[in-house]
Write a protein that binds this DNA or RNA. Structure first.
Lengths: 123, 123
DNA sequence: GCAATATTCAACCATTAGGTTGAATATGAG
DNA sequence: CTCATATTCAACCTAATGGTTGAATATTGC
């Protein structure tokens, strides 16, 4: 494992917020300043600044100061690490998916049985 | 997009906790009861029960009652959706990675320059 | 030097999260 | 029926999150 356990915590927690996910996605198109990032949002600039800080702490974005402007760029490496983690587990899931399918089908049948009982002797 | 925005929130938030990630991983090996899941942890059974509930709400696991036992199975589908989301963005990152590399290298040089200045006229 | 711009810091607030303990509920076993 | 087991519910605590507003800091342009 390259990524430490707690780095994953930070990556996932940072991505768990839709505003931050949108910022990450937008930075995929190129670098942006703080105010530019904040523009589409109803929330205060300060709130966006905090989101940026969270992403920065999670190492998902990188800040470079140019004069009074702070320019943010996407750092895809934690995302790649996360992608690898998920891909690594894929083989295991194959079996689980099959088992789950069978399970859910059986449950649906059981539910139907209950519903039928709710109108007993309907004939 | 298949997965709704808020479903991603739930998936990512659920996975952001190391205990829950471990549970997910363990369930990859096969179904387990609540007490079995709780066994390795120092925390109370109740705490684990809450974690399980979070995973269940995120649809990452599925609960089936068998008598007094609750049997949990992994549902890999949200994980797969997450994997797809990450994979989808990969092309975009390629460019970012290159840009970032150049950036970080430039910064390191700048840092070195500062350090050299700290010992001026060292010769 | 001074005003405008870009951004953060600080304090505050409400909600959520992760944990605890103790009691309740449901099932199983003798 | 009664006791033990499996699990959740309820109330509580503390710390973290996501937001606000107002002030501070740094840089630029005139």
């Amino acid at each position: 494992m390259i990524q430490t356990e707690t780095a994953f915590d930070a990556t996932l927690a940072a991505l768990a917020d839709p505003t931050r996910r949108a910022i990450v996605q937008r930075l995929g198109g190129g670098d942006l300043r703080v105010t530019e990032i904040a523009k589409p949002y109803a929330m205060s600039l300060n709130a966006v600044s905090k989101h940026i800080r969270v992403l920065e702490n999670a190492r998902l974005i990188h800040r470079r100061r140019v004069g009074r402007e702070h320019i943010l760029s996407l750092d895809p490496r934690p995302l790649e690490a996360l992608g690898r983690w998920i891909a690594d587990q894929k083989p295991v899931w194959a079996a689980r998916l099959q088992a789950l399918d069978a399970l859910l089908q059986a449950e649906d049948q059981a539910e139907d049985a209950v519903k039928t009982e709710e109108q007993p002797h309907a004939r």
